[in-house]
Design a protein around this nucleic acid. Structure first.
Lengths: 155, 155
DNA sequence: AATGAAAGCCCCGCTAC
DNA sequence: GTAGCGGGGCTTTCATT
């Protein structure tokens, strides 16, 4: 994981569909070297995949929220079952399993506030294992590029 | 935005680097048609880009957390300035501007718990405009594919 | 909108250095 | 790690329907 690898990771985060040739040109290295690096990064699990970034408003999900919730009884089984159940709901974009005041945090996206209300009241409140939740409506989201390793004396 | 467009969006979310030809084969349409659809989706802003999915542990960020914080005084200016300041911190992966009990939620990734502590104490607590925060350490994250539009009687 | 043909570009294994 | 080569596959445009 040297400077070149970090740069490859950074560039592929910004644009995952650029060709290997273009990537190599930007980095000033031979395409074969570049391809080898990308394959090695993939093999080592640094690059896990490539995903299209989809506009949620364009898919009729203009309203997003973070929903922090607590489950009871608090056990591995209940956490996992709740996680799997909510992951099947179309409104749920991603799920964090956390520790702190909350047990799960859901990132949800829905058409409008009426549907958010329906999701909370009909989708979550009815589940006995969900003891409580708190909703924060999202106004903006900013994504940061993960630049490289944080400073690390080793390696 | 018909059934075919939804399927393209779904497939590119799963694997953004598959070739246009492969995409067309899966959908049972001609490559030129498929390309035209993808371009139209991009032009209309449905597809916003393509990003490599990078393993945070591989980049020496094994510890992730959600940090919910409040700013004071609560004004557009202070929210925006805080958002921009924290977005420059290497530890911050993404930022949500929200309403509810909190004003901002940060997704952070750091090497270990010592660095998390340092980030909170040295990075956040020192800022006068940050009135308080609450930290939830992340154990797992599950990403859901956004399948398509949610049901919408129009269109 | 969708298609097929065609020209050009890219990928990638191979080779040699 | 770099450079060049070549077959096969892919991208992309365009006339046609």
């Amino acid at each position: 994981m040297d400077e070149l690898d970090s740069e490859i990771v950074r560039l592929l985060q910004t644009d995952a569909r650029q060709s290997n040739r273009e990537l190599a040109r930007t980095l000033g290295i031979a395409p074969s070297t570049c391809l080898e690096r990308v394959k090695a990064l993939t093999r080592r699990g640094v690059i896990r995949g490539y995903h299209a970034d989809i506009s949620l408003p364009a898919l009729n999900r203009g309203v997003q929220a973070l929903v922090s919730l607590q489950v009871r009884p608090l056990s591995r089984t209940v956490i996992n079952r709740t996680k799997e159940d909510v992951s099947r709901m179309a409104e749920v974009i991603s799920i964090f399993v956390v520790a702190g005041g909350d047990d799960l945090v859901l990132h949800v996206g829905v058409q409008d506030l009426d549907h958010l209300h329906a999701f909370l009241v009909d989708g979550l409140s009815k589940r006995k294992e969900i003891a409580g939740f708190r909703t924060s409506v999202i106004f903006q989201q900013v994504h940061n590029t993960v630049l490289s390793r944080l400073d690390d004396p080793d390696e």
